[in-house]
Amino acid sequence: MASVDPAGFQQLKEQQYLHDQITVPAELQSNVLVTTLDKAYNWSRRSSMWPLLFGLACCAIEMIATAASRYDLSRFGMEVMRPSPRQSDLMIVSGTVTKKMVPAIVRIYNQMAEPRYVLSMGACATGGGPFKEGYNVVSGIDKYLPVDVYVPGCPPTPEALIFGLMKLHEKVERQSIAKVAWYRKESSGFVPVPILGPDIFDPRQIQLIRENTLGEGAASRSSGGGEVRVMPELLSDDVKQNLEAIRTRYLAKMKQPA
């Protein structure tokens, strides 16, 4: 019996793959691996993480170079760039996010199915980069979307991007199916889509903006006190209600028989 085992099998079994509480019939010992669901789930997600085919600016050129023959992203099971957000797991925000573009990006993000990840590639996507002061430039995609990995550089070299992707893989491997947000009932990754007004505004901040444009705050706005900063998570009641209504409508629709 022991002769069937490959060398080091016992050790492997003890280390990770076989659960010591489970007995496997002798004739199957070499054919069956018992592991945790998390490991299998994460391993498969990590090994075929399809990015969205989505280039914004100069960084996208380096992203293409990463996917091309020299750096060969297919070593990581990532060469299948999907043009449709529905089929992709990872959004690589590769370039400058402009105000005119950000509603589209948020919409695309909302269309991606969970589990989804966002990698912010380059200085622009991370914090505005060289164009930060520009009137049409968003100072970092994390002002609107949750970001998993930041890759610095202008542009990051393909090596740097690959390093960032490997960091993302590590993150995926640490997740547990029991705890991830997207299987929870109450979770919703929906991000309200920013609106193009006289300048772009985030629906989550409507209350705050009103205070500043209409209320007494209008005067203090230009004085620019650092303390008044409000985190975007603080939704106004209106927005909360609105989101709630959207969610209820959505759930009701889902329950209807086809």
């Binding site: 505005g128 100072s139 300048d199 444009t213 706005r221 650092g226 900063r229």
Partner: peptide
């Protein structure tokens, strides 16, 4: 100093005085 910290909404935006975002129709 970060520019973001000087503006209450932490973003690169300004709005004209007296403008009401709730009435805004794109």
């Amino acid at each position: 100093e970060f520019h973001e910290d000087k503006l209450p909404w932490g973003k690169n935006t300004t709005y004209p005085e007296g403008w009401d975002p709730e009435d805004w129709r794109e």
